[in-house]
Design a protein around this nucleic acid. Structure first.
Length: 100
DNA sequence: GTCGTGACTAGCC
DNA sequence: CGGCTAGCCACGA
């Protein structure tokens, strides 16, 4: 299932690192399904077991979050990720490379 | 089976 | 660099 694949991929993101919707979409085999990815996370029934807060837009901008973007940013900062204007600062340094 | 919606992305101006 | 448009996808009504 697409949704489950997204959740699984998101769950693999290590602490202190983040990924983008497009990246996940590509990993699961649907590089053009960035939208569907966000959709899956939005309605994800696994919210408690999935670090959805480690998923941001391609440019590092923070978007929706079940508990609110504010909370999402707070968590990211706790993980050691700097966020400014709802956007990740050191994006390139926190992006998680799956096939590294 | 078709339509509308949304946590997206890349391209243009 | 900021704003707008078109394309792509999965899901629920």
């Amino acid at each position: 299932m697409f949704t489950k694949a997204v959740l699984e991929a998101t769950r693999k993101v290590p602490r202190g690192r983040i990924t983008t919707y497009g990246e996940i979409a590509r990993i699961i085999g649907r590089p053009k399904a960035g939208r569907a990815v966000g959709n899956a996370l939005n309605k994800n029934p696994y919210a408690p077991i999935i670090p959805c807060h480690r998923v941001v837009k391609a440019d590092g901008k923070i978007s929706g979050f079940n508990k609110g973007v504010k909370a999402k940013i707070r968590i990211l900062e706790i993980e050691g990720i700097k966020v400014e204007k709802n956007k990740v600062v050191n994006l390139k340094k926190v992006i998680y490379h799956w096939d590294s």
